[in-house]
């Protein structure tokens, strides 16, 4: 990026953040609650993209979010931690659990990784059902304290929105920096050609574990934000169906750029709200969209826009 581009980017980011700060003023409480969930999902899709840049499409991500959620719930309920501590602690615990899970997972690649991640994540999810004295079993944990920031009660959705916005902006900035750093470049090289990366002296297994741990840490933060807002957490919220919705958001958006998954999330969130009337048919629409995108637009909306943009600029007589 040259200076003028950096400046443009900084101004655009400031405009978006400014818009996000003003947004709740003109909206009803229901819409603010939707925005709270949306911000949690923004962190979730970006952190999922982080793990898949290595080529490791896994099905464990939503469970890693659950690990963060359960950690935050237990720390707030039983240890009396404030929300300032539970959010980062949830991220660290999720990263640690991800490390343990990656010991068998890093033995698999491609399709094997996909299904092994599903099975091992299911083991974690089942342990919440099994050890019900700690995790509350099927009913999960309830009455999770919400707490306060700067003396304001977080029970107010607008106050919670500003907390979520601050956490989301920090997470996105960190993830964006990691994506552009050497680590991010190494991760992308693994998906292009892992053998070539290995022969270039890169410890492939180490970088794959690192990607899974980093992605899981941010998913854990998202999970903590979610359970503090809902006040409860249960194993049903982190099941395979929810995971497939996450895959749909990311596939629709495309993983080619950092912003693709957010675009996918926005489009699919609107679609989700519009199909509220056809509740029973909704999974069918989403399944159909997933199939159509994978067949006709495998690079998602991001790839489509890029292609259109290239066409327009080359027809317009640009120098390329």
């Amino acid at each position: 990026m040259n200076t003028s581009k950096t400046l443009q980017f900084a101004l655009l980011s400031l405009a978006v953040i400014g818009g996000m700060i003003l947004l709740p003023q003109g909206l009803g409480l229901y819409s603010v609650e939707l925005l709270n969930i949306f911000l949690v999902n923004v962190i979730l899709v970006c952190s999922y993209r982080m793990t898949v840049t290595t080529g490791d499409w896994g099905l464990a991500h939503i469970v890693m979010m659950g690990v963060g959620g359960y950690s935050a719930a237990l720390l707030a309920k039983d240890a009396g931690f404030s929300i300032y501590l539970t959010i980062p602690a949830a991220g660290l615990i999720a990263a640690f659990v991800a490390y343990v899970m990656s010991l068998p997972l890093s033995r698999t690649v491609g399709f094997g990784y996909f299904i092994a991640s599903f099975a091992i994540a299911e083991l974690v999810r089942l342990s919440w059902l099994k050890f019900d004295t700690l995790f509350g079993g099927v009913r999960g944990l309830i009455n999770i304290p919400i707490g306060k920031v700067f003396g304001y009660s977080l029970f107010d959705p607008v106050i919670y929105y500003y907390l979520s916005l601050a956490v989301a902006v920090i997470c996105l900035m960190l993830m964006f920096q990691i994506d552009r750093s050497r680590i991010g470049i190494v991760w992308r090289s693994l998906s292009t050609d892992a053998d070539l990366a290995r022969s270039g002296g890169i410890n492939v297994s180490y970088y794959r574990k690192l990607a899974f741990m980093c992605g899981s840490a941010f998913a854990g933060v998202a999970g903590a934000l979610l359970v503090h807002r809902l006040g409860s957490v249960d194993p049903k919220g982190f099941d395979l169906t929810t995971m497939i919705y996450l895959v749909i958001w990311v596939v629709v958006g495309g993983t080619g750029s950092f912003w693709g998954p957010i675009a996918g999330l926005i489009v699919m969130t609107f679609f989700f709200e519009w199909t509220r009337e056809f509740l029973a048919w909704r999974p069918l629409f989403f399944g159909g969209i997933l199939i159509l995108f994978l067949i006709f637009l495998p690079n998602g909306l991001d790839g489509l826009l890029r292609k259109l943009f290239d066409k327009v600029t080359s027809r317009g007589g640009a120098k390329q």
């Binding site: 491609g110 497939i244 895959v247 399944g287 969209i289 994978l294 495998p298």
Partner: peptide, 29 residues
């Protein structure tokens, strides 16, 4: 599904996750 996504095993796999949704809804309806 599999023939059009032949070049990418994972794409075929994820697309059949969509098919799973479709079959569940149809059976339920």
């Amino acid at each position: 599904i599999f023939r059009p996504t032949k070049s990418n095993t994972l794409a075929g796999f994820m697309a059949t996750a969509g098919l799973a949704f479709i079959l569940q809804v149809l059976a339920g309806q």
